[in-house]
Design a protein around this nucleic acid. Structure first.
Length: 323
DNA sequence: ACAGGTCAAGTCGTA
DNA sequence: TACGACTTGACCTGT
């Protein structure tokens, strides 16, 4: 099985390379002139995109082939202050360059829209805003000349004091989601409400690839203390995707704060799964969700190099290896 | 220069 | 019904 490790949005190694510099609404308001404000936002976005390119060059050095882009590349997008802003007029060439670098290196790029993007909300306005945010993500992917298919991972949403009803509402709302947005989505189990089993059922019903988050599953296992029996079905949700199945891993921050992400990944979070997965899939992309970002990936890579052989791992090449 | 507070979003638990 | 906590990185304000 070919495994590729990835990390989230920013680096602790590359200095001054934030991909999510922003401007507050108050600051925008203070400028007074909308055109001038939008121009400034475009300059910030340009810098964010440029920093993503720098991060991809950094990834190239370590053969890291999987990367989640920040969902905050363009500040205040969707805010009422920026209504009617054709940000792509200015930013398209920069996105194009970012996409070129990603393609050159064969890097899998994806997004994780923020947790207030909710397709199962009973409030129409929340649904509409969420849909707009997802359309915005597709616009960015298209500007990078990357296929938007299965590039946005998100959660099922809120429980709204009736989980069964809220699950049904997700299915009902799915009809109102545009075909482009539907294709872009992957669903992930969360750490409080929707278990891996809940999410899987939804994914099977609607034909959505499922991203298994191991850490969330440990926080919120439901009836499936052992995830093994669900793994073949989870992998099967990827059968019609051109992308390899994807997982998230992280370790709990502490006993008191189990849900929060630790700085690093404990290798034992990973290895029992790898052998099991290797029997079921040819490829697997693993997103490392750790506070120390790329450094957590580098540390895991060192571990794989040092001790991996015992666990059946061969042919290590930076952030990619074979099990 | 640094610390602590604020922002942005929607949901959810507690008064 | 109203408000604070939650989450995250960055910005903002006061020292």
């Amino acid at each position: 099985m070919e495994v590729r490790l990835g990390y989230v949005a920013m680096s602790v190694h590359v200095a001054n390379a934030s991909p999510s510099k922003t401007m507050t609404a108050a600051q925008f308001d203070k400028i007074g002139d909308k055109e001038a404000g939008l121009h400034k936002l475009e300059r910030i976005a340009e810098e964010n995109i440029h920093n993503c390119i720098r991060l991809l060059y950094h990834n190239r050095a370590y053969n890291i082939k999987f990367f989640r882009l920040s969902s905050r590349l363009i500040p205040l997008v969707g805010h009422e202050y920026t209504h009617g802003w054709n940000y792509m007029d200015e930013l398209a060439p920069h996105f194009q360059k970012l996409g070129e670098v990603a393609r050159e290196d064969g890097v899998r790029i994806d997004f994780h829209p923020d947790h207030f993007v909710l397709l199962n909300s009973p409030r129409k306005q929340v649904f509409d805003t969420s849909h707009k945010v997802l359309e915005h993500h597709i616009r960015m992917l298209t500007a990078m000349s990357l296929s938007p298919k299965h590039r946005c991972v998100m959660h099922v949403g809120g429980a709204y004091s009736d989980k069964e009803k809220a699950l049904k509402r997700f299915v009902a709302n799915w009809d109102k989601v545009s075909p482009e947005v539907r294709q872009a989505i992957m669903l992930e189990n969360d750490d409080k409400v929707y278990t891996a089993r809940d999410t899987l059922m939804l994914c099977e019903t609607l034909g959505i690839p499922m991203v298994l988050d191991i850490h969330h599953h440990r926080c919120n296992p439901g009836q499936d203390a052992d995830i093994s029996s669900l793994l073949p079905r989870i992998l099967a949700t990827w059968s019609r995707s051109s992308l390899p199945p994807k997982m998230h891993i992280s370790s709990p921050r502490s006993d008191k704060n189990k849900r929060a992400h630790a700085d690093y990944i404990r290798p034992e979070e990973l290895f029992p799964f790898l052998k099991e997965m290797a029997r079921m899939t040819e490829r697997l992309d693993i997103m490392v969700e750790a506070k120390q970002k790329d450094d957590a990936v580098l540390r895991l890579m060192d571990w794989v190099k040092r001790e991996g052989e015992v666990h059946g791992i061969q042919a290590v090449n930076g952030g990619a290896f074979t099990v």
